[in-house]
């Protein structure tokens, strides 16, 4: 029995989400005795393949190197995975936008009902997953012969990046499906830690009021070495780029410390941060729902409290 994990990477390096996914695969391996293989499909992706081979618990790395795998287009990656699927009982990927885009396509081609966003492994084919924006947790059992999963990365601590020494095997690429082509990427570059895996996240909402004032949130984040997040309204209003959104339909984070500033605490926002270890809320409305889940609440005008925090930290 073998598990295939589809690596998320940038051709040079494997992303942390891949190691969270391998952690989930390891939980399945512990119950089934399965081996874990990792697929690295990309262009000039030797760096990522070498990185994958060093991750602990990995038994083998499959590398497919071709120009049309450079940007992870769903049509091409899914054809590649399906062509190699016979050997695998489980196929898994991170529940990031990369995994969400490709996995259902693979599942449908293999006639499997995918299980999205697993939080834990309860049995060989039994998993928990959040529904209704995390307002309920379902325990589900897959009855298909193959099991296809995406993994909620905050549910699994990443396995170590070092310690493995798996062989890398080159596999044939499939033809370019030519259904879609990459045009451009407007990457949001930041010196700050990555939002999904940061230790501390400082998020701002509508209360911050403007793009200029959002600098306050950024300054506080920098003081704490934190990543910056935002509510949907802050993104919609153009204070920050789209990939800062935390929530049911944005990123899910579970840092040691999450600070929500000028955020009311809508169900959809809570869905993305309520598993944080410590939650701080700063809001001028003492009735704001965010206070119901905050470990420490401060009723204050953020334009007073945040500068004071920055000064005193």
């Amino acid at each position: 029995m073998t598990i295939l994990v589809i690596a998320e990477h940038n051709n040079d390096r494997v992303r942390t989400s891949t190691r969270n996914t391998i952690a989930a695969a390891k939980d399945i391996a512990d119950k089934t005795g399965a081996d874990i293989h990792v697929l690295v499909a990309g262009k000039d992706c030797a760096g990522a393949a070498t990185g994958a081979s060093q991750i602990e618990h990995v038994a083998k790395v499959l590398r497919a190197d071709a120009p049309h795998y450079e940007h992870g287009l769903a049509e091409n990656i899914s054809n590649l995975v399906v062509a190699n699927a016979d050997a695998y009982s489980y196929i898994m990927a991170p529940g990031s936008t990369f995994g969400r885009n490709i996995m259902p396509r693979i599942a449908a081609l293999l006639d499997v009902q995918q299980v999205s966003d697993i939080l834990s492994v309860e049995g060989e084919k039994t998993f928990t997953r959040p529904i209704y924006g995390g307002q309920a947790i379902a325990t589900v059992e897959s009855t298909d012969e193959k099991t296809i999963l995406t993994v909620r990365t905050t549910g699994f601590d990443a396995v170590a990046a070092e310690g493995g020494s798996a062989p890398v095997e080159d596999i044939d690429s499939q033809d370019d499906a030519k259904l879609s082509t990459f045009v451009s990427l407007e990457e949001s570059k930041s010196e700050r830690p990555e939002l999904s895996s940061a230790n501390i996240v400082v998020s701002g909402g509508r209360g911050v009021g403007s793009k200029d004032d959002f600098k306050l949130i950024e300054d506080l984040a920098d003081k704490l070495g934190a990543a910056v997040g935002a509510s949907r309204v802050a993104v919609d209003s153009g204070y920050v780029p789209n990939d800062y959104q935390v929530g049911q339909t944005g990123k899910v984070v579970a840092p040691n410390l999450y600070m929500a500033v000028g955020i009311s605490g809508a169900i959809q926002h809570l869905a993305g941060m309520k598993d944080s270890k410590v939650i701080v809320a700063i809001n001028k409305d003492e009735e704001a729902p965010i206070f119901q889940i905050a470990d420490y609440g401060l009723v204050a005008d953020l334009f007073d409290a945040v500068p004071e925090l920055i000064e005193k930290l």
Binding site: T97, K178, V183, S184, L185, E186, E187, D243
Partner: peptide, 14 residues
């Protein structure tokens, strides 16, 4: 244009 984890990606699809 697609909203992805790293920013905004533009693709062309037939």
């Amino acid at each position: 244009t697609r909203e992805i984890d790293g920013g905004l990606e533009t693709i062309s699809v037939s």
